[in-house]
């Protein structure tokens, strides 16, 4: 009997712990000033961003969290579209690796896309985007995979010979250490020579919409 009571006590303890943890899980706008201090957003920008987050996170399930379907829906206005990059960006936003985005993850990731964000943050993010296997370098095979996938998504058609030739030339230029891969330093040098590679890393909307 005593053992049984002890078991019930332990179970209650575990349940209370779980509830407590769940309550502490930050979902919404807890303290805009902390986020404003730790990102490039102003307090009013954080508040405006939260309104956007609420809209996106309630599109499919109104739970104050963004799942992949809601993420795709917000980006493309359809959840049917296949996009390697949308998947990749979602995974990079999802720093807790639990398949959903809370407001803090969303705001911290979007902060990199702010016009005032440091260039190095944009370079790092774009590097991670292309480093599909997260090995700390971009392999030729990853580049080929991305080229083929994005061409297929867009309906553009290039022969394998042309694709191979473009990738050869890219590595001739970027892979200055001649080890068959592009590391972060080589990526940084390539991006500085071709600033257009960071074009999608800046969203003017974050300044215009969030302050209006």
């Amino acid at each position: 009997m005593l053992q049984c009571l002890e078991g019930v006590k332990q179970l209650c303890g575990v349940l209370l712990k779980c509830c407590d943890l769940d309550l502490k899980q930050p979902k919404g706008l807890e303290d805009p000033e902390i986020l404003a201090r730790e990102t490039v957003f102003s307090v009013s920008e954080v508040e405006a961003l939260y309104e956007l987050f609420k809209k996106i996170s309630s599109a499919v399930i109104d739970d104050g969290l963004i799942n992949k379907e809601e993420f795709q829906l917000a980006l493309f206005k359809t959840n049917k579209k296949e996009s390697l990059f949308a998947d990749r960006v979602f995974d990079l936003f999802d720093t807790k690796h639990n398949g959903i985005l809370g407001f803090e993850e969303f705001a911290r990731a979007l902060s990199v896309f702010h016009p005032n964000a440091p260039l190095d943050e944009k370079i790092d993010f774009s590097f991670q985007l292309y480093d599909l296997k997260q090995q700390g370098f971009i392999e030729r095979q990853e580049v080929k995979q991305m080229v083929v996938a994005t061409l297929a998504e867009s309906g553009m058609n290039l022969s394998d010979e042309v694709i191979e030739s473009i990738i050869d030339k890219t590595f001739e230029e970027a892979d200055t250490k001649h080890d068959g891969k592009i590391d972060k330093e080589e990526w940084r040098n390539l991006v500085l020579r071709h600033p257009s590679l960071l074009k999608n890393m800046t969203l003017q909307y974050l300044k215009v919409k969030c302050t209006s």
Binding site: I56, A74, F76, T150, L158, K169, T170, E173, Y205
Partner: peptide, 27 residues
């Protein structure tokens, strides 16, 4: 095809990819 050889693979990915996060802000 000659012109396509002058762009690098990442520029090509950028052109072909539909990824543009501005979709978040458009109704």
């Amino acid at each position: 095809d000659k012109n396509s050889h002058q762009i690098n693979a990442f520029q090509l990915i950028g052109m072909a990819s539909s990824l543009d996060l501005s979709g978040f802000f458009e109704d």
